[in-house]
Simulated scan of single mutants.
Amino acid sequence: MAKKGDKTNAVRMIERQKIAYELLHYEIQDAESVDGISVSEKIGYSVEYVYKTLVATSSTNQYYVFVVPVAEELDLKKAAKVVGQKKVEMIPVKELLNITGYVRGGCSPIGMKKLFPTYLDASAESLEFMIVSAGKIGLQLKLSPQDLAKAANAEFVDIV
Rank of each mutant, 00 (worst) to 15 (best):
M1E: 07
A2R: 13
A2I: 00
K4C: 04
G5K: 08
N9F: 12
A10N: 08
V11Q: 13
R12Y: 14
M13E: 08
I14T: 02
I14M: 12
I14W: 11
E15P: 00
E15L: 01
Q17G: 02
K18V: 12
K18C: 03
I19W: 13
E22M: 01
E22I: 00
L24P: 05
E27D: 11
D30H: 15
A31M: 09
A31D: 15
S33T: 05
V34R: 02
S38M: 04
E41G: 02
K42W: 06
I43W: 15
G44R: 05
Y45L: 08
S46L: 08
E48Q: 03
Y49F: 07
Y51C: 07
K52I: 00
T53P: 02
V55E: 09
A56G: 07
T57C: 10
F66Q: 05
V67A: 07
V67I: 12
P69D: 14
V70G: 01
E72K: 14
L74S: 05
L76G: 03
K78T: 02
G84N: 09
G84L: 08
Q85R: 15
K87I: 01
V88I: 13
I91V: 11
P92A: 06
K94V: 05
K94S: 09
L96I: 04
N98P: 00
I99G: 03
T100M: 07
Y102H: 07
V103C: 03
V103F: 12
R104V: 10
G105R: 01
G105S: 04
G106K: 00
C107N: 01
S108W: 10
S108G: 08
P109H: 07
M112N: 02
L115Y: 14
L115A: 10
F116M: 04
Y119H: 08
L120W: 08
L120T: 01
A122H: 13
A122I: 13
L127A: 05
E128H: 05
M130Q: 02
G138F: 08
L139E: 11
L141G: 07
L141T: 11
L141V: 13
K142F: 08
L143I: 01
L143G: 05
S144I: 03
Q146H: 12
Q146Y: 14
D147K: 04
K150E: 12
N153T: 09
N153A: 08
N153D: 11
A154K: 06
E155Q: 10
D158E: 12
D158P: 01
D158N: 10
